[in-house]
Every structure is written in structure tokens, then in C-alpha cells.
Design a protein around this nucleic acid. Structure first.
Ligand code: SF4
Ligand code: SF4
Lengths: 165, 165
DNA sequence: GTTAAGCTGTATTGTGTATACATCTTCAAC
DNA sequence: GTTGAAGATGTATACACAATACAGCTTAAC
């Protein structure tokens, strides 16, 4: 029982952007703040944009901001839409359903109930609830990280140069 | 968000054994009934025995039976003890905790709540609840499966022969 | 027209689960 | 007391999928 880091990254992005709503935030900046892969994060952001949680702006000076008020971003919905393979066991997926006792299995319904209970908790909260500790978040996200001022060490810092090589 | 099939197999075994409590059930028999890997199932059964859910008997005429009454086998407990990597996100594991905002993250607690809600549903049910459809289960498990009477096709059917080869 | 940003698609890596294989141990039947 | 059917155990492989990396394109500000 675990969520994909994809989903967690999605929520992290929303927290970051929500905590810095005075300006546009870039993917590179967020990746550095959390010290995670910029490339992966780009796909996460893309998904968030698809779902209408953030608005992105291309080009110089671009970045992203929340497309809705934090209060209107439901956490259960976010997780549901970032976690695509959300079938607890094989019988939950009509395609894979090969379990022989599925027609008479009480467990199936029970697991469904449990999952509902899980999401009910998330459904009753919004991004706004994650921002109550906003000052603390801002502070934690601003802390220096390994290699902060040193060599860029990968990422896309050296992009554009490579074309010449 | 998904459970390991290891856990699901564990529950399947308990249902099988619980539905056939008039005799000992063998691993091979259960593997055939569900049409799943006998080798994998062996490890599952081993774990169930470790946890004290089933009693196993080696040797000819051996097999397994429930070590407790179905009413005393709690489903939440079973899942918790068969699902070992049960940290929803990285910060739930003290070892891996590398998330920079963990000290000020409200999401962490929220996910914990959601997980509790999930298990609360399972905690309030026992194996006995899965056996209410017992006649149906017995019938489904007895249905012929592909290759039932034909060639054994692997498994451990031909074991012992191989030593000679 | 150069540069900083996001967009897109593909390829590679990595992790963890599921499965297979091989061998050993036990026990009951014969 | 030998044999064979069962479980016990350890290792190795296969597979699925998530995570990451790479490469190039597009857009917009300066
Ligand atoms: S045992 Fe029940 S819950 Fe598990 S896969 Fe089969 S039908 Fe689904
Ligand atoms: S963002 Fe919060 S929930 Fe996710 S890993 Fe970090 S501390 Fe845990």
C-alpha cells in the first residue's frame, strides 16, 4: 500500500506554488527546493496543468501559478487524478480480472469500502488545509541544499550549450 | 495505491482453508484452485503460519488448517502483517525520509489519517465475514480450470524426477 | 536573434514484486 | 527402513512499472 511519488510530487508542487502565490514559480526552482528530478517534475506539472490546477506560462519570465483558490483544490481529487493505476487488487481492474472467486468474493466489496474511507478523508480537505503552516513551509523550502551554489551538476543548467558540442 | 498480490493471496488462502475446514488443504491444491504460482503461494502460506493464522503439517497426508476460529482472524491485522512495505510516501519511512518539508508538512498527518480510516474498515471485519458466501466459494473453487486434467505443465508435479535427470 | 522558460516524446535506469528453480527436511504409509 | 508426498528454505531470474535522463521543439520576453 503506497502512493506513487508522482502523486506526492504533485501535492508538493501545489504546496510550493500555493505558498508562493505572489509570483510565478518555475519548475527548476521547485525541483531545486525539494532536491528532486527536474525532468520528472516537469511531467508532474504538465499533469497538474491538464487537470486545471495550475496555469503555466512559457517563455522567458514564465512559470506557473495556481489556477484556482487553494480552498477549491480538493486533495482527494488531486490524488485520484495523479494516481492512475488505482486498483487495489486485480479484480478491481475489469481488464485483468482473472480471480476465480470474484463473483462470490465478499472481500472485494470490503476493500472497496476501505478505499472509499481512505479517500473520504482526503476528500474532506483542500490545499488550503496544507497551507496553514505556510510560513514554516516557506522557510523550509528556502533552506540551502547540497550543491546549491556549487556546480550545477546536471539538470538542465547546461542546456543549449550541448547543441554546439 | 495498491496492495501486493502477496497480501491478496494470503487472504485467498485463508478463505480457501476456512471454506474447507473439514480436512487439511495442501498448497498444491490451493494453487490449482486459484490457478496461481505454487511456489509463490508456498511463501505466502509460510508467512501465514508464522503469524499463527494457519497450522501446517509436513509429510505425506500433510497440509494446513486454520489455527484459530475465523471470527478471531482480523482482516486488518492480516493485511498489515502481509504487506510489509506499508509506507504510503517516503516520509513515513524513518530511513528514507528525505523530504525537505517533512517537519512542517500537514499532508503527512492527513495521509496518516486516511490510512487509518482504510484499516479501520478492515479492522472491523474478520475472516468469518468473508465466509458468509461459503457455499458459493466452494463451488467456484471447484470449477475445472485450464489444463485441469491434462498435462501438469510445470508446477511441482514432476518433482523428484528431475533429480535423476 | 538570443535566451529562458515550458512542451513533448523516447530511452534508460532502478526498484520491488512475482515467479521459478533447487535442495533440504519431515512424516506417514507401505 | 525405504519411499514418496508434503512443507521449509534459500537463491536466482523475470517482469512490471515507476522514476529518471536525454534530446529536441516551441513560445515569449528582452
Ligand atoms: S480474492 Fe476477492 S478481492 Fe482478491 S482478487 Fe479475488 S475477488 Fe478480488
Ligand atoms: S510532502 Fe509531506 S507527505 Fe509528501 S513526503 Fe514530504 S512530508 Fe511526506
Amino acid at each position: 500500500m503506497r502512493l506513487t511519488t508522482f502523486s506526492d510530487y504533485g501535492l508538493r508542487v501545489l504546496m510550493y506554488v500555493g505558498a508562493h502565490d505572489d509570483r510565478l514559480a518555475t519548475i527548476g526552482e521547485i525541483a531545486q527546493a525539494y532536491d528532486i528530478s527536474e525532468n520528472h517534475l516537469m511531467k508532474v506539472v504538465h499533469r497538474l496543468a491538464q487537470c486545471g490546477y495550475v496555469e503555466t506560462a512559457r517563455g522567458r519570465g514564465g512559470g506557473m501559478r495556481l489556477a484556482r483558490a487553494p480552498r477549491d483544490i480538493n486533495l482527494g481529487e488531486v490524488v485520484r487524478r495523479t494516481e492512475d493505476r488505482s486498483h487495489l487488487v486485480e479484480c478491481f481492474d475489469p481488464q485483468t480480472s482473472g480471480c476465480r472467486i470474484a463473483p462470490g468474493c465478499t472481500l472485494k466489496g470490503l476493500l472497496g469500502e476501505a478505499m472509499d474511507a481512505f479517500f473520504q478523508v482526503l476528500d474532506s480537505h483542500s490545499l488550503a488545509d496544507l497551507l496553514v503552516t505556510r510560513p514554516k513551509l516557506v522557510k523550509l523550502l528556502a533552506l540551502p541544499r547540497r550543491g546549491a551554489t556549487a556546480a550545477p551538476s546536471g539538470g538542465r543548467a547546461a542546456r543549449g550549450r550541448q547543441r554546439a558540442g
